[in-house]
Design a protein around this nucleic acid. Structure first.
Lengths: 219, 219
DNA sequence: ACCTGAACACCGTTCAAGT
DNA sequence: ACCTGAACACCGTTCAAGT
């Protein structure tokens, strides 16, 4: 028999330390734990039992919040798309430039998002292991392309760029930024001895140049 | 007791049907089986036991030819890079065009390779699950960029394009083609009701236009 | 309502044993 | 030299039972 005081302090410790996660926010704790596993150990190491361990719950607990592993991966992907959807307009806030400048800033922001959140980008576009037919995922994944189309149409209305099909132009910009993003985070552009900071500056400068070239070429 | 004739015919059947794989070519049979699993069931379903099943051997047999699962994945990736390295010069063989035309053809060939071999492209650039430090993989993965640099330098020498850094230009072309390739095979460009054939034609036309815009912009 | 422990099928990997 | 079957640790998922 333990003294009451011991039971009490254990209860308090549970409430203060171990339990905060379990008061209705285990779902988000699992998403955060999953992202952490992904960042620290890579996609092949992402498994529900490890995520549960990191979150400090039993291996069966995640099933109270996600029907299966795919659903957790899908949730992480949705979180990534939401972050990206926030990052693009944020880059747009500089009021001094042309619409072309804004599109260039959005392109650079896409690349920077990928460099800063490689685990998210890999899950978002890795494709496998996630529920592609999830309606929330589908809706949010369309944001980037729509954002580009909108701004391309603005630039066309003001005469800054030519009248080529706006969706085609948006696809081309997206493809170029996406390619830079993935090749950079996969290390395919790594020059021997080049520092990360230098590579980032180099890649973003190239990416911006690409945006302007593509916009110029779509007439 | 079975009659001798039955035993004989069973032995012959083994030699003719089940055994040909096992005479020194199980390694390649496993690579082929792995690619098949990948194509038919996707990356998450790629496991050594299923590959062994498809190849018709016991689950331990692959370990005679590959130290671990990573090594099989790496072998499939190397095969993909070799196929790509063959496809780029093949697109180059039309002798009627300018060097810019050849670069455009190489870009389109890259995209077509990806559309025709999505399982390979995913493994080649999926990154995770493969031995990145494999020397053979590293060597062959550099081919594409070097191919572009070489042809860009030729175009610069003949005055077809400007004198911007050839490696930067090559990276930009690669990024744009890579982005088209991945977004197309992930279905991100899919328009409702658009046929695959139409999408392929549409994407390749856009990609070619991008190559020309980027080359034009790099001065 | 939310979480745990036992249970089952399945995968990666190893190893002694077979031909 | 090459392959098999048993074995072990580990993961996804389920479910009855606990608070």
């Amino acid at each position: 028999m333990l003294p009451v005081s011991t039971l009490l302090s254990e209860n308090m410790a549970r409430k203060a330390d171990a339990r905060p996660y379990h008061h209705g926010d285990l779902k988000n704790a699992l998403i955060a734990a999953g992202l952490r596993v992904l960042t620290e150990q890579g996609v092949p190491a992402l498994n529900l039992r490890e995520v549960a361990r990191v979150a400090g719950v039993s291996h069966a607990a995640p099933y109270r919040h996600f029907p299966d592993k795919q659903a957790l991966i899908t949730a992480i992907a949705i979180e990534g798309f939401e972050m990206l959807a926030a990052a693009l307009p944020a880059a747009d806030s500089a009021p001094h430039g042309s619409t072309i400048d804004r599109l260039a800033a959005a392109g650079v922001a896409y690349l920077c998002f990928a460099i800063d959140n490689p685990a998210h980008i890999r899950i978002m576009f890795g494709g496998d292991g996630m529920r592609r037919d999830d309606p929330a995922l589908y809706a949010i994944s369309k944001f980037g392309l729509e954002y580009l189309v909108t701004h391309i149409q603005i630039a066309q209305a003001t005469g800054e760029i030519g009248q080529a099909d706006a969706l085609d132009t948006a696809k081309s910009l997206w493809a170029a930024m996406h390619g830079f993003a993935l090749l950079v985070i996969e290390g395919q552009f790594r020059a021997p001895g080049e520092a990360d900071v230098a590579m980032r500056a180099h890649a973003t400068a190239l990416a911006e140049r690409c945006v302007r070239s593509i916009l110029h070429g779509m007439r």
